[in-house]
Computed example of a mutant assay.
Amino acid sequence: MPVWQESILLVVTAVVLAVIVKTFFVQAFYIPSESMEPTMQVDDKLLVQKVSYWGGSPDRGDIVVFDDPGGWLGSADASAPSNVVQKALEVIGLYPSGGHLIKRVVGVGGDTVECCDSAGRLMVNGEPVEESYLADQAANAEPTFTVEVPDGYLWVQGDNRGNSSDSRYHLGDPGGGFISEDAVVGKAWLRVWPFSRFGFIEHSDAFEGVP
């Protein structure tokens, strides 16, 4: 085979492998807003892994990336790659994707989630949850609500409870603020940028006491 044909074959093979990796294993994303501070900072670049949910569902405490269920994203958050090269790289998983949301799962199917107890703590199935990762515990207590999460759905909230348009603020939507498990792209796994904060994203044990 001539060198030019081998080169084309290698490029095509590399692209196909990259698409397979993006589809089934790992995908790159970036943080567009302050809603997950201090855990995630604006413009953090993440790798999201999909293997954990091949045969299962998200757990309480997982930080998940999911498709916009409709009307959750502002214009800035929904911004697409600005040129053809970035778009092509996004398709094969080599450029961080936009147009998605990232929140923490605080309720799974069958849970009753309530805000809040007298100390301002989130209640899940009657058990108060000590969320040490919150940006501001005092901001957790608004708005008040009590919801029962349907099977196959999730209730998600940002760690920056005072500045996060999450499930709480979409109670009046047709979907009731719940996220379908099918909309979840994957689980936040590794922060790759900035390099000073490079590292794996640890799972929280805050919900271990929830029945």
Rank of each mutant, 00 (worst) to 15 (best):
R168H: 03
V124L: 00
E148R: 14
S204Q: 04
A18Y: 08
L73R: 09
V51I: 12
L134C: 03
P211A: 15
S132M: 03
A183V: 03
E148H: 13
R191L: 07
L171A: 14
K87D: 15
L134Y: 01
L122V: 01
V26C: 11
P211T: 13
D43F: 10
P150C: 04
S57E: 15
S118N: 08
V65A: 09
D111W: 07
E148Y: 11
W4Q: 12
F178Y: 07
F207N: 06
T112V: 14
I63Y: 08
A135H: 12
V48P: 02
F178I: 00
D43H: 12
L190K: 02
A80Q: 15
N125F: 05
W189C: 10
S118V: 08
W4N: 11
D111L: 09
E90V: 05
D111Q: 04
G176R: 07
F66L: 06
Y153H: 12
G186Q: 10
R191F: 04
T112D: 09
A183P: 02
V192T: 09
D67E: 14
G109V: 00
V91L: 15
R191S: 07
S33Q: 05
Y153T: 13
T13W: 07
F200V: 09
Q86N: 14
N163A: 12
S35P: 08
V210W: 05
S97Q: 15
Y95W: 15
L17Y: 07
D68M: 09
I8V: 14
V113I: 02
Y169Q: 15
P128I: 00
F24Y: 11
A183E: 13
R121M: 03
S204D: 09
L101D: 05
V19N: 02
E6I: 13
V16S: 10
S165G: 08
S7D: 11
G70T: 04
A78L: 03
H203Q: 13
V85D: 05
P194T: 07
Q5W: 10
G61E: 00
R191A: 03
P150F: 06
S164C: 05
D173I: 00
A88E: 09
D67C: 05
G152K: 04
P32Q: 08
G176A: 08
L171S: 12
P38I: 01
G199V: 13
I8T: 06
F145Q: 07
A188W: 05
V15M: 09
G93R: 07
F207P: 10
L73D: 01
L10P: 01
